[in-house]
């Protein structure tokens, strides 16, 4: 079936069986391999992406259900406003092997957006721990991840204009790492 959605700010149309996992469409059809598969059953969060501003596991989403949706993956996180989190992860040593990192970042940013929407304080440390509970990390003990998320939120809060809840459109269309992979997806700006 033909599914149309926005990925990292660009619109995308793709012809795939509707039950295919969003994760495979991203990784195989669109060549966006930043989103990882750690379990394929919703337990580890390595495949976390933002779907209409909410964090979800791409391994549990049939692509038919994202028709018309806006998706942000780690490749589009910076453009969507999550850069400060990425910088904090590097600075504070929150990424070790890096397998959980893309998913962790998407959850962290999802929690920030969620807090903005609900008028909650994203900085609450227990709140951060809960927000990341669906993302397993085996390397770090989560300590540096939580520290980095907290620092990233600080930077985000300092930004003159808070990022839009929906991802900002992205420029830079012809970067091969952003699509046109081996699959049959077509991306239009």
């Amino acid at each position: 079936m033909i599914v149309t959605f926005t990925i990292n700010g660009r619109s995308c149309q793709i012809d795939v069986p509707g039950d295919h996992r969003l994760l495979d469409v991203l990784r195989v059809n669109l060549g966006l391999t930043g989103t990882k598969e750690g379990c394929g059953e919703g337990e580890c969060g390595a495949c976390s992406v933002l779907l209409d501003g909410q964090v979800v596991n791409a391994c549990l989403i049939p692509v038919a259900q994202v028709d018309g949706a806006q998706i942000v993956t780690v490749e589009g996180l910076e453009a969507a406003g999550g850069g400060p989190l990425q910088e904090a992860f590097v600075a504070l040593g929150a990424a070790q092997c890096g397998s959980c990192t893309p998913g962790m970042l998407m959850s962290a940013y999802g929690h920030f957006l969620e807090s903005l929407r609900n008028g909650d304080d994203p900085q609450d440390r227990e709140g951060i721990r809960h927000a990341l509970a669906g993302n397993l990390c085996r390397c770090t003990g989560y300590q540096k991840i939580i520290d980095a998320v907290s620092k990233g939120y600080e930077e985000l809060a300092r930004m003159p204009s808070l990022p839009p809840a929906a991802p900002a459109p992205q420029t830079g269309h012809n970067d091969p790492s952003h699509g046109g992979g081996p699959g049959h997806g077509s991306l239009t700006g």
Binding site: T33, G34, V74, L77, A91, G98
Partner: peptide, 18 residues
């Protein structure tokens, strides 16, 4: 800061399945 950090946080590090 770890040298492979910037690629890891951008999803650019290519593991075997990538």
């Amino acid at each position: 800061a770890r040298k492979d950090g910037p690629d890891k946080v951008r999803g650019l590090t290519r593991y075997i399945d990538d």
